[in-house]
Amino acid sequence: MGLADFFTTKLDSALGWARKYSIFQYPFVTACCGMEYMATACSHYDVDRFGAGLPRFSPRQADVLFVVGTISHKMAPVLRRVYDQMTEPKWVVAFGVCTCTGGFYDNYATVQGIDTILPVDVYIPGCPPRPESVLDGLMKLQDKIAAGRQRF
């Protein structure tokens, strides 16, 4: 019925609005991008004004997995395990070009893009990406969160 759809749509957008402004990130930091992640999280390029300022270091308590920095084949099972342990709804941000495509590390030790092991929602390229790029990616993620069907 039309009225039921109206209510679920409104509920969806309300939930989407709430979820996009309260992002609890799991910063899976490995490498150089971690320095730019720190810079984005700190006072100059504050990420807290987006509501995303509280990192949660437990996968059960986080909803966005920020994969920051190169993932090697040794680290890949750990990453997959952390992703599997996260509860729904969850999103993945590939921060830095090493996580998007492997970067310029085309060698025996590097995973050529984490989308070979996880489903990725937002890609933030850059080596490392400037904090402005990170915030742009975060805003795209917020749009994606708000626009999606909210399950609960």
Partner: peptide, 11 residues
Amino acid sequence: IGYLHRAFEKE
């Protein structure tokens, strides 16, 4: 250690 081995020397 070794979780960030990126083959610097080989590259």
